[in-house]
Nucleic acid binder design. Structure first.
Lengths: 132, 132
DNA sequence: CAGCTTTTTAGAACCATTATAAACTAGTCT
DNA sequence: AGACTAGTTTATAATGGTTCTAAAAAGCTG
């Protein structure tokens, strides 16, 4: 299994459930955005056994902590995650709550001129809200 | 009362509670960021009577809808609002969850090269996460 | 396999937010 | 001013995403 190493590398034991989650998250041609709720639905659709919500939350958060998933800052009651962990940005379609990737090259360089002493910049995220 | 017109202008009747909320939100030298919880606390501290949570939510959302307040997209369990409604961005201090304003001039122009047909850009928001 | 630790699970708990329905208030008309 | 109507406030319940818990199950080491 190709994800065993990835999991071990993150300090996670390769359990059946985690491997199944890995397949749904990382075994795809394209990266995608999801909420826990959507992932849970996908699990129900594509996997025979059930995986409890607690496990899904635990696993997704573990991946997020290790950098295998990114959280996307959006104003929503649900948390959005992204399997695309490259440095990029997002469109947010207000009408349906869907996200669309915006490559870094589509935005151009962002130069933060203000400095906060004692602090380092961890990430710069641009959210472009779309309306009709 | 200087807020009566502002409220009427937004289609809101100038009630005692709304005027009190206006004073706390807009009668300050500096703009500031807040969560509903923090605003509720401030109301308890500075106002004799109580204002129910429902009224606070309703009023804040009405102002947000009319553009007198802005919501800030952050990954948090609580919604952050900003009384600074000028076009600007934010630092987000991961350690304490506090926000710091970033003037537009501190970020430089952002040119979104990608277009989504049938959609207009409503806003562009930059969130700069800070760590130690 | 035995023993120990981690993980999974269902369900409860939590907490921000939203909905509800009754009491109240503002604005208007006479 | 009195009374009517529509909008508002309030306490409380409901909702829903997320986190916690404790017991059962599975992984790992020797």
């Amino acid at each position: 299994m190709k994800y065993i190493e990835k999991l071990r590398n993150s300090g996670l034991r390769p359990t059946k459930q985690r491997l199944q989650i890995c397949e749904l998250l990382f075994d795809t041609e394209k990266t995608f955005h999801f909420t826990i709720n959507e992932l849970n639905q996908k699990i129900k659709d594509k996997i025979d056994n059930k995986i409890s919500l607690a496990t899904i939350y635990n696993t997704v958060h573990a991946f997020e902590k290790k950098g295998y998933l990114k959280q996307i800052p959006v104003n929503s009651n649900q948390t959005y995650f992204d399997t695309n962990i490259t440095d990029h940005h997002h469109f947010y379609n207000l009408k349906d709550g869907k996200l669309i990737d915006l490559e870094k090259s589509d935005v151009g360089p962002i130069n933060i001129k203000k400095k906060i002493d004692g602090k380092k910049i961890k990430s710069i995220e641009v959210l472009v809200k779309l309306e009709d």
